[in-house]
Design a protein around this nucleic acid. Sequence first.
DNA 1: TTTTGTGAACTCATTCACAGCT
DNA 2: AGCTGTGAATGAGTTCACAAAA
Lengths: 288, 288
Amino acid sequence: VTRERPVVPAPVERSVGSEREQSTGTERVIPQATVTRLATYLRVLGILADDGVLIVSSEELANAAGVGSAKLRKDLSFLGPNGVRGVGYDVMRLRAKIESALGLDRGHKVVLVGVGNLGQALARYGGFGRRGFTMVGLFDRDPDRIGLDIDGLRVEHVDTLESGCRELEATIGVIATPDDAAQAVASAFVAGGVECILSFSPVELDVPDRVEVRRVDLAVEMQVLSFNSSRREAAHGGPDLPPTPRLGRSRGPRVSPGGMSGAGVAAGVVSSPGSTSSNTRNGSVIAP
Amino acid sequence: VTRERPVVPAPVERSVGSEREQSTGTERVIPQATVTRLATYLRVLGILADDGVLIVSSEELANAAGVGSAKLRKDLSFLGPNGVRGVGYDVMRLRAKIESALGLDRGHKVVLVGVGNLGQALARYGGFGRRGFTMVGLFDRDPDRIGLDIDGLRVEHVDTLESGCRELEATIGVIATPDDAAQAVASAFVAGGVECILSFSPVELDVPDRVEVRRVDLAVEMQVLSFNSSRREAAHGGPDLPPTPRLGRSRGPRVSPGGMSGAGVAAGVVSSPGSTSSNTRNGSVIAP
DNA sequence: TTTTGTGAACTCATTCACAGCT
DNA sequence: AGCTGTGAATGAGTTCACAAAA
Protein backbone atom coordinates (compact mmCIF):
# COMPACT_ATOMS: atom_id res chain seq x y z
CA VAL A 1 0.00 0.00 0.00
CA THR A 2 1.70 3.12 -1.23
CA ARG A 3 1.10 6.42 0.51
CA GLU A 4 1.60 10.10 0.24
CA ARG A 5 3.60 10.18 -2.93
CA PRO A 6 1.68 12.35 -5.37
CA VAL A 7 1.72 11.52 -9.01
CA VAL A 8 1.24 8.32 -10.87
CA PRO A 9 1.19 7.71 -14.58
CA ALA A 10 -2.35 7.72 -15.83
CA PRO A 11 -3.54 4.56 -17.50
CA VAL A 12 -3.51 4.85 -21.24
CA GLU A 13 -7.03 5.37 -22.41
CA ARG A 14 -6.46 3.93 -25.85
CA SER A 15 -9.96 3.39 -27.00
CA VAL A 16 -10.58 0.01 -28.38
CA GLY A 17 -13.37 -0.16 -30.87
CA SER A 18 -15.07 2.50 -32.94
CA GLU A 19 -14.66 5.99 -31.62
CA ARG A 20 -18.28 6.97 -31.33
CA GLU A 21 -18.40 5.23 -28.00
CA GLN A 22 -16.93 8.02 -25.93
CA SER A 23 -20.17 9.95 -26.01
CA THR A 24 -21.35 8.49 -22.74
CA GLY A 25 -18.95 7.82 -19.94
CA THR A 26 -20.15 4.26 -19.82
CA GLU A 27 -18.69 2.16 -22.56
CA ARG A 28 -19.47 -1.51 -22.21
CA VAL A 29 -22.57 -3.14 -20.86
CA ILE A 30 -21.83 -3.77 -17.18
CA PRO A 31 -23.75 -6.71 -15.71
CA GLN A 32 -26.15 -6.08 -12.84
CA ALA A 33 -24.11 -8.16 -10.45
CA THR A 34 -21.10 -6.03 -11.19
CA VAL A 35 -22.96 -2.80 -10.61
CA THR A 36 -23.88 -3.92 -7.12
CA ARG A 37 -20.29 -4.65 -6.28
CA LEU A 38 -19.01 -1.42 -7.75
CA ALA A 39 -20.89 0.36 -5.02
CA THR A 40 -19.01 -1.68 -2.47
CA TYR A 41 -15.65 -0.95 -4.01
CA LEU A 42 -16.53 2.69 -3.90
CA ARG A 43 -17.06 2.60 -0.17
CA VAL A 44 -13.77 0.88 0.43
CA LEU A 45 -11.98 3.31 -1.82
CA GLY A 46 -13.43 6.14 0.20
CA ILE A 47 -11.95 4.73 3.35
CA LEU A 48 -8.59 4.23 1.69
CA ALA A 49 -8.61 7.76 0.39
CA ASP A 50 -9.37 9.11 3.86
CA ASP A 51 -6.36 7.19 5.09
CA GLY A 52 -4.16 8.83 2.52
CA VAL A 53 -3.63 5.69 0.49
CA LEU A 54 -2.74 6.50 -3.10
CA ILE A 55 -2.24 3.19 -4.82
CA VAL A 56 -3.91 -0.10 -4.16
CA SER A 57 -3.58 -3.48 -5.82
CA SER A 58 -6.49 -5.63 -6.89
CA GLU A 59 -5.59 -8.13 -4.22
CA GLU A 60 -5.73 -5.57 -1.43
CA LEU A 61 -8.87 -3.91 -2.62
CA ALA A 62 -10.55 -7.24 -3.14
CA ASN A 63 -9.75 -8.42 0.36
CA ALA A 64 -11.05 -5.24 1.86
CA ALA A 65 -14.27 -5.57 -0.08
CA GLY A 66 -14.69 -9.24 0.67
CA VAL A 67 -14.46 -10.60 -2.86
CA GLY A 68 -11.89 -12.48 -4.88
CA SER A 69 -9.27 -10.50 -6.73
CA ALA A 70 -10.11 -12.02 -10.08
CA LYS A 71 -13.70 -11.01 -9.74
CA LEU A 72 -12.70 -7.52 -8.79
CA ARG A 73 -10.48 -7.13 -11.82
CA LYS A 74 -13.16 -8.47 -14.08
CA ASP A 75 -15.63 -6.05 -12.61
CA LEU A 76 -13.35 -3.10 -13.10
CA SER A 77 -12.52 -4.14 -16.61
CA PHE A 78 -16.03 -3.19 -17.67
CA LEU A 79 -15.15 0.43 -17.04
CA GLY A 80 -12.20 0.32 -19.38
CA PRO A 81 -8.55 0.37 -18.39
CA ASN A 82 -8.12 1.59 -14.83
CA GLY A 83 -4.89 0.42 -13.35
CA VAL A 84 -1.23 0.31 -14.20
CA ARG A 85 0.22 -3.15 -14.68
CA GLY A 86 2.82 -4.11 -12.19
CA VAL A 87 1.67 -1.29 -9.94
CA GLY A 88 -2.00 -1.17 -9.10
CA TYR A 89 -4.87 1.27 -9.12
CA ASP A 90 -4.77 4.96 -8.40
CA VAL A 91 -7.29 5.33 -5.60
CA MET A 92 -8.57 8.76 -6.54
CA ARG A 93 -8.80 8.05 -10.22
CA LEU A 94 -10.57 4.76 -9.74
CA ARG A 95 -13.00 6.31 -7.36
CA ALA A 96 -13.89 9.02 -9.79
CA LYS A 97 -14.33 6.53 -12.56
CA ILE A 98 -16.71 4.35 -10.60
CA GLU A 99 -18.69 7.34 -9.44
CA SER A 100 -19.06 8.46 -12.98
CA ALA A 101 -20.04 5.01 -14.19
CA LEU A 102 -22.66 4.76 -11.49
CA GLY A 103 -24.04 8.15 -12.38
CA LEU A 104 -23.33 9.55 -8.95
CA ASP A 105 -21.89 12.71 -10.36
CA ARG A 106 -25.24 14.00 -11.43
CA GLY A 107 -26.46 14.90 -7.96
CA HIS A 108 -29.53 12.80 -7.42
CA LYS A 109 -32.34 14.36 -5.46
CA VAL A 110 -34.15 12.08 -3.07
CA VAL A 111 -37.66 12.35 -1.70
CA LEU A 112 -38.76 10.21 1.21
CA VAL A 113 -42.30 9.33 2.26
CA GLY A 114 -43.15 7.97 5.69
CA VAL A 115 -41.37 9.60 8.60
CA GLY A 116 -41.79 6.88 11.19
CA ASN A 117 -38.88 5.21 12.89
CA LEU A 118 -37.49 3.80 9.72
CA GLY A 119 -38.09 6.95 7.73
CA GLN A 120 -36.33 9.07 10.31
CA ALA A 121 -33.44 6.69 10.42
CA LEU A 122 -33.12 7.11 6.68
CA ALA A 123 -33.62 10.85 6.73
CA ARG A 124 -30.90 11.34 9.28
CA TYR A 125 -28.55 8.88 7.72
CA GLY A 126 -25.51 10.95 6.90
CA GLY A 127 -24.19 8.61 4.28
CA PHE A 128 -26.31 10.11 1.56
CA GLY A 129 -24.65 13.44 1.25
CA ARG A 130 -21.21 12.00 0.94
CA ARG A 131 -22.42 9.71 -1.81
CA GLY A 132 -23.86 12.16 -4.24
CA PHE A 133 -27.42 12.06 -2.98
CA THR A 134 -29.31 14.96 -1.51
CA MET A 135 -32.43 14.53 0.53
CA VAL A 136 -34.77 17.23 -0.74
CA GLY A 137 -38.21 16.35 0.56
CA LEU A 138 -40.00 14.53 3.37
CA PHE A 139 -43.67 13.61 3.37
CA ASP A 140 -46.09 11.89 5.69
CA ARG A 141 -49.80 11.28 6.18
CA ASP A 142 -50.00 11.74 9.93
CA PRO A 143 -50.98 15.34 10.83
CA ASP A 144 -48.86 15.12 13.97
CA ARG A 145 -45.76 14.77 11.87
CA ILE A 146 -46.50 17.45 9.32
CA GLY A 147 -44.33 20.44 9.98
CA LEU A 148 -41.74 18.49 11.89
CA ASP A 149 -38.21 19.59 11.19
CA ILE A 150 -35.76 16.82 10.50
CA ASP A 151 -32.23 17.81 9.70
CA GLY A 152 -33.41 21.07 8.28
CA LEU A 153 -36.21 19.68 6.16
CA ARG A 154 -39.87 20.27 6.89
CA VAL A 155 -42.24 17.30 6.70
CA GLU A 156 -45.01 18.00 4.19
CA HIS A 157 -48.36 16.36 3.70
CA VAL A 158 -48.38 13.41 1.38
CA ASP A 159 -51.22 14.93 -0.64
CA THR A 160 -48.70 17.38 -2.04
CA LEU A 161 -46.32 14.62 -3.02
CA GLU A 162 -46.91 14.63 -6.74
CA SER A 163 -46.47 18.35 -7.22
CA GLY A 164 -43.64 18.33 -4.71
CA CYS A 165 -41.69 15.79 -6.71
CA ARG A 166 -42.08 17.84 -9.81
CA GLU A 167 -41.01 21.09 -8.21
CA LEU A 168 -38.09 19.54 -6.38
CA GLU A 169 -37.03 17.65 -9.50
CA ALA A 170 -36.63 14.48 -7.52
CA THR A 171 -35.06 11.53 -9.31
CA ILE A 172 -35.32 8.95 -6.55
CA GLY A 173 -38.27 8.20 -4.29
CA VAL A 174 -38.08 6.24 -1.09
CA ILE A 175 -41.10 4.52 0.43
CA ALA A 176 -40.95 3.96 4.18
CA THR A 177 -44.67 3.93 4.86
CA PRO A 178 -46.98 1.22 6.19
CA ASP A 179 -47.83 -1.37 3.57
CA ASP A 180 -51.31 -0.11 2.86
CA ALA A 181 -49.98 3.22 1.66
CA ALA A 182 -47.18 1.93 -0.50
CA GLN A 183 -49.02 1.56 -3.78
CA ALA A 184 -50.61 4.99 -3.57
CA VAL A 185 -47.27 6.59 -2.86
CA ALA A 186 -45.66 4.76 -5.74
CA SER A 187 -48.35 5.98 -8.08
CA ALA A 188 -47.87 9.53 -6.88
CA PHE A 189 -44.14 9.22 -7.47
CA VAL A 190 -44.73 8.07 -11.01
CA ALA A 191 -47.20 10.86 -11.64
CA GLY A 192 -44.62 13.28 -10.28
CA GLY A 193 -41.98 12.10 -12.70
CA VAL A 194 -39.90 9.90 -10.41
CA GLU A 195 -38.58 6.84 -12.21
CA CYS A 196 -36.53 5.17 -9.51
CA ILE A 197 -38.17 3.88 -6.36
CA LEU A 198 -36.67 2.28 -3.30
CA SER A 199 -39.35 0.58 -1.25
CA PHE A 200 -39.16 -0.87 2.23
CA SER A 201 -42.62 -2.29 2.02
CA PRO A 202 -42.95 -5.87 0.89
CA VAL A 203 -45.90 -5.22 -1.36
CA GLU A 204 -45.34 -5.74 -5.04
CA LEU A 205 -45.77 -2.33 -6.64
CA ASP A 206 -47.65 -1.89 -9.87
CA VAL A 207 -45.83 0.70 -11.92
CA PRO A 208 -45.09 1.33 -15.60
CA ASP A 209 -42.25 -0.62 -17.14
CA ARG A 210 -39.94 2.35 -17.41
CA VAL A 211 -39.91 2.78 -13.64
CA GLU A 212 -37.41 0.81 -11.65
CA VAL A 213 -38.31 -0.47 -8.24
CA ARG A 214 -35.91 -1.89 -5.72
CA ARG A 215 -37.44 -3.52 -2.72
CA VAL A 216 -35.81 -4.11 0.60
CA ASP A 217 -37.67 -6.60 2.70
CA LEU A 218 -36.48 -7.37 6.18
CA ALA A 219 -38.54 -10.48 6.58
CA VAL A 220 -37.04 -11.96 3.45
CA GLU A 221 -33.54 -11.31 4.70
CA MET A 222 -34.26 -13.03 7.95
CA GLN A 223 -35.89 -15.95 6.25
CA VAL A 224 -32.94 -16.52 3.99
CA LEU A 225 -30.75 -16.43 7.06
CA SER A 226 -33.02 -18.93 8.71
CA PHE A 227 -32.82 -21.28 5.80
CA ASN A 228 -29.09 -21.22 5.61
CA SER A 229 -28.79 -21.81 9.31
CA SER A 230 -31.07 -24.81 9.04
CA ARG A 231 -29.16 -26.26 6.18
CA ARG A 232 -25.83 -25.75 7.80
CA GLU A 233 -27.08 -27.53 10.85
CA ALA A 234 -28.47 -30.37 8.80
CA ALA A 235 -25.15 -30.71 7.03
CA HIS A 236 -22.87 -30.68 10.05
CA GLY A 237 -23.52 -34.29 10.90
CA GLY A 238 -23.85 -34.91 7.21
CA PRO A 239 -22.14 -37.33 4.93
CA ASP A 240 -19.00 -36.05 3.40
CA LEU A 241 -18.29 -32.45 4.05
CA PRO A 242 -14.58 -31.86 3.69
CA PRO A 243 -12.59 -31.28 6.91
CA THR A 244 -13.25 -27.61 6.32
CA PRO A 245 -9.83 -26.36 7.23
CA ARG A 246 -10.29 -23.38 4.94
CA LEU A 247 -8.59 -20.55 6.65
CA GLY A 248 -10.41 -17.36 7.56
CA ARG A 249 -11.07 -15.05 4.73
CA SER A 250 -8.69 -12.32 5.72
CA ARG A 251 -5.78 -13.62 3.78
CA GLY A 252 -4.02 -10.37 3.01
CA PRO A 253 -3.05 -7.69 5.45
CA ARG A 254 -5.98 -5.87 6.94
CA VAL A 255 -6.49 -2.68 5.09
CA SER A 256 -7.18 0.42 7.09
CA PRO A 257 -4.58 0.59 9.86
CA GLY A 258 -5.74 3.58 11.80
CA GLY A 259 -8.90 5.10 10.51
CA MET A 260 -12.00 3.29 9.37
CA SER A 261 -13.71 6.55 9.96
CA GLY A 262 -16.37 7.92 7.70
CA ALA A 263 -19.82 6.55 7.27
CA GLY A 264 -20.82 3.37 5.71
CA VAL A 265 -22.66 2.26 2.72
CA ALA A 266 -22.22 -1.17 1.56
CA ALA A 267 -23.63 -3.79 -0.59
CA GLY A 268 -25.36 -6.99 -0.15
CA VAL A 269 -22.49 -9.31 -0.18
CA VAL A 270 -23.04 -12.40 1.79
CA SER A 271 -21.12 -15.46 2.45
CA SER A 272 -22.83 -18.69 3.04
CA PRO A 273 -20.46 -21.56 3.36
CA GLY A 274 -22.47 -23.84 1.18
CA SER A 275 -22.69 -27.44 2.26
CA THR A 276 -20.27 -28.36 -0.43
CA SER A 277 -17.73 -26.08 -1.93
CA SER A 278 -16.81 -22.47 -1.66
CA ASN A 279 -18.78 -19.65 -0.22
CA THR A 280 -21.54 -18.43 -2.41
CA ARG A 281 -21.62 -14.72 -2.49
CA ASN A 282 -24.91 -13.28 -3.31
CA GLY A 283 -25.22 -9.79 -4.58
CA SER A 284 -28.23 -7.62 -4.56
CA VAL A 285 -31.02 -6.78 -2.30
CA ILE A 286 -34.65 -6.54 -2.26
CA ALA A 287 -35.76 -8.49 -5.15
CA PRO A 288 -38.92 -10.08 -6.30
CA VAL B 1 -59.27 -18.97 -7.53
CA THR B 2 -61.21 -21.49 -5.52
CA ARG B 3 -62.56 -20.56 -2.13
CA GLU B 4 -64.16 -21.94 0.96
CA ARG B 5 -64.46 -25.53 -0.08
CA PRO B 6 -62.60 -27.62 2.48
CA VAL B 7 -60.78 -30.68 1.40
CA VAL B 8 -58.48 -31.33 -1.48
CA PRO B 9 -56.62 -34.46 -2.38
CA ALA B 10 -53.11 -34.36 -0.99
CA PRO B 11 -50.29 -34.59 -3.50
CA VAL B 12 -48.79 -38.03 -3.56
CA GLU B 13 -45.48 -37.89 -1.76
CA ARG B 14 -43.96 -40.78 -3.67
CA SER B 15 -40.36 -40.48 -2.80
CA VAL B 16 -38.08 -40.62 -5.74
CA GLY B 17 -34.61 -41.77 -5.03
CA SER B 18 -33.04 -43.63 -2.16
CA GLU B 19 -35.08 -43.64 1.02
CA ARG B 20 -32.57 -42.27 3.43
CA GLU B 21 -33.42 -38.78 2.26
CA GLN B 22 -36.54 -38.30 4.34
CA SER B 23 -34.50 -37.63 7.45
CA THR B 24 -34.58 -33.89 6.96
CA GLY B 25 -37.59 -32.19 5.50
CA THR B 26 -35.36 -30.67 2.86
CA GLU B 27 -34.61 -33.10 0.10
CA ARG B 28 -32.87 -31.51 -2.84
CA VAL B 29 -30.34 -28.76 -2.88
CA ILE B 30 -32.34 -25.58 -3.43
CA PRO B 31 -30.36 -22.80 -5.15
CA GLN B 32 -29.78 -19.54 -3.32
CA ALA B 33 -31.80 -17.57 -5.79
CA THR B 34 -34.74 -19.85 -5.21
CA VAL B 35 -34.53 -19.54 -1.45
CA THR B 36 -34.87 -15.80 -1.73
CA ARG B 37 -37.99 -16.10 -3.80
CA LEU B 38 -39.55 -18.73 -1.57
CA ALA B 39 -39.72 -16.09 1.11
CA THR B 40 -41.66 -13.89 -1.27
CA TYR B 41 -44.09 -16.63 -2.18
CA LEU B 42 -44.66 -17.21 1.47
CA ARG B 43 -45.75 -13.65 2.00
CA VAL B 44 -48.21 -13.80 -0.87
CA LEU B 45 -49.59 -17.11 0.33
CA GLY B 46 -50.20 -15.54 3.69
CA ILE B 47 -52.31 -12.85 2.11
CA LEU B 48 -54.24 -15.37 0.06
CA ALA B 49 -54.89 -17.48 3.13
CA ASP B 50 -56.20 -14.45 4.99
CA ASP B 51 -58.59 -13.90 2.14
CA GLY B 52 -59.91 -17.41 2.43
CA VAL B 53 -58.40 -18.61 -0.81
CA LEU B 54 -57.87 -22.37 -0.79
CA ILE B 55 -56.42 -23.23 -4.15
CA VAL B 56 -54.19 -21.18 -6.37
CA SER B 57 -52.59 -21.88 -9.73
CA SER B 58 -48.95 -21.29 -10.55
CA GLU B 59 -49.98 -18.56 -12.93
CA GLU B 60 -51.95 -16.66 -10.30
CA LEU B 61 -49.39 -17.06 -7.59
CA ALA B 62 -46.60 -16.09 -9.92
CA ASN B 63 -48.34 -12.92 -11.03
CA ALA B 64 -49.05 -11.92 -7.47
CA ALA B 65 -45.40 -12.43 -6.59
CA GLY B 66 -44.08 -10.66 -9.67
CA VAL B 67 -42.30 -13.56 -11.34
CA GLY B 68 -42.95 -15.82 -14.30
CA SER B 69 -45.03 -18.91 -13.76
CA ALA B 70 -42.36 -21.24 -15.09
CA LYS B 71 -39.86 -19.91 -12.64
CA LEU B 72 -42.27 -20.32 -9.80
CA ARG B 73 -42.98 -23.92 -10.69
CA LYS B 74 -39.31 -24.67 -10.98
CA ASP B 75 -38.69 -23.08 -7.61
CA LEU B 76 -41.41 -25.10 -5.95
CA SER B 77 -40.25 -28.28 -7.60
CA PHE B 78 -37.17 -28.21 -5.37
CA LEU B 79 -39.41 -28.90 -2.40
CA GLY B 80 -40.84 -32.02 -3.96
CA PRO B 81 -44.36 -32.44 -5.31
CA ASN B 82 -46.64 -29.70 -4.05
CA GLY B 83 -49.62 -29.22 -6.30
CA VAL B 84 -52.25 -31.27 -8.00
CA ARG B 85 -52.08 -31.35 -11.76
CA GLY B 86 -54.99 -29.84 -13.51
CA VAL B 87 -55.96 -28.08 -10.30
CA GLY B 88 -53.30 -26.03 -8.60
CA TYR B 89 -51.71 -25.65 -5.19
CA ASP B 90 -53.39 -26.00 -1.84
CA VAL B 91 -52.59 -22.69 -0.18
CA MET B 92 -52.28 -23.98 3.36
CA ARG B 93 -50.28 -27.02 2.46
CA LEU B 94 -47.87 -25.11 0.27
CA ARG B 95 -47.39 -22.51 2.92
CA ALA B 96 -46.54 -25.12 5.51
CA LYS B 97 -44.11 -26.78 3.17
CA ILE B 98 -42.24 -23.61 2.38
CA GLU B 99 -42.09 -22.66 6.03
CA SER B 100 -40.64 -26.00 6.83
CA ALA B 101 -38.11 -25.84 4.01
CA LEU B 102 -37.01 -22.41 5.16
CA GLY B 103 -36.63 -23.63 8.70
CA LEU B 104 -39.20 -21.17 10.01
CA ASP B 105 -40.89 -23.82 12.09
CA ARG B 106 -38.07 -23.94 14.56
CA GLY B 107 -38.88 -20.66 16.25
CA HIS B 108 -35.81 -18.53 15.69
CA LYS B 109 -34.86 -16.21 18.49
CA VAL B 110 -33.57 -12.83 17.48
CA VAL B 111 -31.33 -10.46 19.35
CA LEU B 112 -30.90 -6.88 18.22
CA VAL B 113 -28.08 -4.49 19.04
CA GLY B 114 -28.37 -0.75 18.54
CA VAL B 115 -31.67 0.82 19.53
CA GLY B 116 -31.47 4.03 17.54
CA ASN B 117 -34.04 5.00 14.97
CA LEU B 118 -33.33 2.05 12.77
CA GLY B 119 -33.09 -0.38 15.65
CA GLN B 120 -36.40 0.75 17.08
CA ALA B 121 -38.02 0.47 13.70
CA LEU B 122 -36.83 -3.10 13.54
CA ALA B 123 -37.75 -3.91 17.13
CA ARG B 124 -41.28 -2.70 16.64
CA TYR B 125 -41.69 -4.23 13.23
CA GLY B 126 -44.63 -6.55 13.69
CA GLY B 127 -43.76 -8.73 10.75
CA PHE B 128 -41.35 -10.84 12.76
CA GLY B 129 -43.83 -12.57 15.00
CA ARG B 130 -46.03 -13.62 12.15
CA ARG B 131 -43.05 -15.09 10.38
CA GLY B 132 -41.69 -17.43 12.96
CA PHE B 133 -39.23 -15.05 14.56
CA THR B 134 -39.29 -13.87 18.13
CA MET B 135 -37.40 -10.85 19.31
CA VAL B 136 -35.85 -11.91 22.59
CA GLY B 137 -33.23 -9.33 23.42
CA LEU B 138 -32.30 -5.67 22.84
CA PHE B 139 -28.91 -4.16 23.59
CA ASP B 140 -27.29 -0.77 23.31
CA ARG B 141 -24.20 1.12 24.40
CA ASP B 142 -25.80 4.42 25.27
CA PRO B 143 -26.60 4.62 29.04
CA ASP B 144 -29.64 6.77 28.27
CA ARG B 145 -31.19 3.89 26.41
CA ILE B 146 -30.43 1.12 28.87
CA GLY B 147 -33.58 0.17 30.70
CA LEU B 148 -35.88 1.51 28.02
CA ASP B 149 -38.89 -0.65 27.42
CA ILE B 150 -39.68 -1.37 23.81
CA ASP B 151 -42.64 -3.57 23.10
CA GLY B 152 -42.18 -5.32 26.41
CA LEU B 153 -38.45 -5.88 26.12
CA ARG B 154 -35.90 -4.12 28.29
CA VAL B 155 -32.82 -2.67 26.64
CA GLU B 156 -29.68 -4.15 28.18
CA HIS B 157 -26.10 -2.97 28.09
CA VAL B 158 -24.08 -4.26 25.22
CA ASP B 159 -21.38 -5.49 27.59
CA THR B 160 -23.74 -8.28 28.55
CA LEU B 161 -24.34 -9.26 24.96
CA GLU B 162 -22.27 -12.41 24.84
CA SER B 163 -23.72 -14.00 27.95
CA GLY B 164 -27.14 -12.71 26.99
CA CYS B 165 -27.03 -14.48 23.66
CA ARG B 166 -26.10 -17.69 25.34
CA GLU B 167 -28.83 -17.50 27.96
CA LEU B 168 -31.49 -16.45 25.50
CA GLU B 169 -30.37 -19.10 23.05
CA ALA B 170 -30.45 -16.61 20.23
CA THR B 171 -29.96 -17.96 16.73
CA ILE B 172 -30.03 -14.71 14.81
CA GLY B 173 -28.27 -11.47 15.62
CA VAL B 174 -29.10 -8.11 14.10
CA ILE B 175 -26.64 -5.24 14.01
CA ALA B 176 -28.16 -1.77 13.83
CA THR B 177 -25.32 0.14 15.46
CA PRO B 178 -23.02 2.84 14.17
CA ASP B 179 -20.29 1.48 11.95
CA ASP B 180 -17.53 1.71 14.49
CA ALA B 181 -19.27 -0.73 16.79
CA ALA B 182 -20.26 -3.29 14.19
CA GLN B 183 -17.20 -5.51 14.33
CA ALA B 184 -17.15 -5.70 18.10
CA VAL B 185 -20.80 -6.63 18.18
CA ALA B 186 -20.28 -9.28 15.54
CA SER B 187 -17.46 -10.79 17.56
CA ALA B 188 -19.62 -10.83 20.67
CA PHE B 189 -22.35 -12.56 18.72
CA VAL B 190 -19.97 -15.23 17.58
CA ALA B 191 -18.62 -15.70 21.09
CA GLY B 192 -22.18 -16.01 22.29
CA GLY B 193 -22.94 -18.78 19.85
CA VAL B 194 -24.89 -16.84 17.23
CA GLU B 195 -24.15 -18.09 13.72
CA CYS B 196 -26.43 -15.92 11.63
CA ILE B 197 -25.97 -12.18 11.47
CA LEU B 198 -27.98 -9.54 9.70
CA SER B 199 -26.02 -6.32 9.54
CA PHE B 200 -27.15 -2.86 8.52
CA SER B 201 -23.68 -1.49 8.71
CA PRO B 202 -21.64 -1.45 5.53
CA VAL B 203 -18.45 -2.62 7.13
CA GLU B 204 -17.12 -5.97 6.06
CA LEU B 205 -17.31 -8.17 9.12
CA ASP B 206 -14.51 -10.52 9.97
CA VAL B 207 -16.10 -13.68 11.33
CA PRO B 208 -15.37 -17.40 11.17
CA ASP B 209 -16.49 -19.18 8.05
CA ARG B 210 -19.25 -21.08 9.73
CA VAL B 211 -21.03 -17.82 10.51
CA GLU B 212 -23.27 -16.37 7.87
CA VAL B 213 -23.54 -12.66 7.43
CA ARG B 214 -26.12 -10.86 5.38
CA ARG B 215 -25.60 -7.20 4.88
CA VAL B 216 -28.20 -4.65 3.97
CA ASP B 217 -26.81 -1.43 2.75
CA LEU B 218 -28.94 1.51 1.88
CA ALA B 219 -26.32 3.39 0.00
CA VAL B 220 -25.66 0.47 -2.28
CA GLU B 221 -29.32 0.22 -3.06
CA MET B 222 -29.48 3.84 -3.97
CA GLN B 223 -26.36 3.66 -6.05
CA VAL B 224 -27.66 0.76 -8.06
CA LEU B 225 -30.81 2.73 -8.62
CA SER B 226 -28.73 5.67 -9.71
CA PHE B 227 -26.83 3.60 -12.19
CA ASN B 228 -29.88 2.14 -13.77
CA SER B 229 -31.49 5.51 -14.08
CA SER B 230 -28.41 6.89 -15.77
CA ARG B 231 -28.24 4.05 -18.19
CA ARG B 232 -31.89 4.22 -19.05
CA GLU B 233 -31.50 7.87 -19.82
CA ALA B 234 -28.38 7.30 -21.87
CA ALA B 235 -30.10 4.62 -23.88
CA HIS B 236 -33.23 6.49 -24.82
CA GLY B 237 -31.57 8.59 -27.46
CA GLY B 238 -28.95 5.96 -28.08
CA PRO B 239 -27.46 4.81 -31.36
CA ASP B 240 -28.89 1.54 -32.46
CA LEU B 241 -31.09 0.05 -29.88
CA PRO B 242 -33.44 -2.32 -31.64
CA PRO B 243 -36.94 -0.97 -32.30
CA THR B 244 -37.79 -2.54 -28.98
CA PRO B 245 -41.18 -3.78 -29.92
CA ARG B 246 -40.86 -6.46 -27.31
CA LEU B 247 -44.26 -6.61 -25.80
CA GLY B 248 -44.87 -5.81 -22.17
CA ARG B 249 -43.88 -8.50 -19.79
CA SER B 250 -47.32 -9.30 -18.52
CA ARG B 251 -48.17 -11.89 -21.08
CA GLY B 252 -50.85 -13.61 -19.08
CA PRO B 253 -54.08 -12.08 -17.91
CA ARG B 254 -53.89 -9.47 -15.22
CA VAL B 255 -54.29 -11.04 -11.84
CA SER B 256 -56.99 -9.77 -9.58
CA PRO B 257 -60.27 -9.83 -11.47
CA GLY B 258 -62.84 -9.34 -8.79
CA GLY B 259 -61.60 -10.34 -5.46
CA MET B 260 -58.02 -10.02 -4.29
CA SER B 261 -59.29 -7.75 -1.60
CA GLY B 262 -57.38 -7.35 1.62
CA ALA B 263 -53.85 -6.19 1.34
CA GLY B 264 -52.13 -4.98 -1.72
CA VAL B 265 -50.20 -7.54 -3.69
CA ALA B 266 -49.90 -6.32 -7.17
CA ALA B 267 -48.31 -7.77 -10.20
CA GLY B 268 -45.89 -4.96 -10.94
CA VAL B 269 -42.62 -6.70 -11.54
CA VAL B 270 -39.47 -5.03 -10.67
CA SER B 271 -36.66 -4.97 -13.08
CA SER B 272 -35.07 -2.49 -15.30
CA PRO B 273 -35.73 -2.69 -18.97
CA GLY B 274 -32.15 -3.21 -19.92
CA SER B 275 -30.90 -1.36 -22.94
CA THR B 276 -30.44 -4.60 -24.74
CA SER B 277 -32.20 -7.76 -23.87
CA SER B 278 -34.67 -8.99 -21.36
CA ASN B 279 -35.51 -7.78 -17.95
CA THR B 280 -33.00 -8.66 -15.34
CA ARG B 281 -34.72 -9.78 -12.24
CA ASN B 282 -32.71 -9.46 -9.21
CA GLY B 283 -33.59 -11.49 -6.17
CA SER B 284 -33.40 -10.65 -2.58
CA VAL B 285 -34.19 -7.71 -0.48
CA ILE B 286 -32.24 -5.33 1.47
CA ALA B 287 -29.66 -7.33 0.36
CA PRO B 288 -26.66 -7.58 -0.83
C1' DT C 1 9.08 -9.26 -11.60
C1' DT C 2 4.84 -7.69 -10.42
C1' DT C 3 0.17 -6.89 -11.35
C1' DT C 4 -3.38 -5.81 -14.68
C1' DG C 5 -6.82 -7.22 -18.24
C1' DT C 6 -9.19 -10.87 -20.52
C1' DG C 7 -10.40 -15.11 -23.37
C1' DA C 8 -11.99 -19.58 -22.25
C1' DA C 9 -13.92 -23.06 -19.13
C1' DC C 10 -17.15 -23.70 -15.80
C1' DT C 11 -20.98 -23.19 -12.59
C1' DC C 12 -25.29 -21.26 -11.44
C1' DA C 13 -29.88 -19.48 -12.93
C1' DT C 14 -33.74 -18.70 -16.17
C1' DT C 15 -36.65 -19.90 -19.90
C1' DC C 16 -38.83 -23.09 -23.03
C1' DA C 17 -41.78 -26.59 -24.21
C1' DC C 18 -43.95 -30.68 -23.36
C1' DA C 19 -44.76 -35.22 -21.09
C1' DG C 20 -47.62 -36.82 -17.45
C1' DC C 21 -51.40 -36.62 -14.15
C1' DT C 22 -56.08 -35.41 -12.69
C1' DA D 1 -59.36 -29.65 -20.85
C1' DG D 2 -56.08 -27.89 -17.61
C1' DC D 3 -52.13 -27.43 -14.86
C1' DT D 4 -48.09 -29.29 -12.68
C1' DG D 5 -43.35 -31.00 -12.81
C1' DT D 6 -39.12 -31.29 -15.29
C1' DG D 7 -35.45 -32.32 -18.97
C1' DA D 8 -33.09 -29.76 -22.20
C1' DA D 9 -31.63 -25.20 -24.14
C1' DT D 10 -30.16 -20.81 -23.34
C1' DG D 11 -28.10 -17.12 -20.82
C1' DA D 12 -25.75 -14.79 -16.85
C1' DG D 13 -22.10 -14.73 -13.66
C1' DT D 14 -17.71 -16.64 -11.73
C1' DT D 15 -13.25 -18.69 -11.74
C1' DC D 16 -9.01 -19.98 -14.00
C1' DA D 17 -4.84 -19.19 -15.89
C1' DC D 18 -1.96 -16.66 -18.73
C1' DA D 19 -0.41 -13.10 -22.09
C1' DA D 20 0.70 -8.32 -22.17
C1' DA D 21 2.40 -4.18 -20.04
C1' DA D 22 5.18 -1.42 -16.91
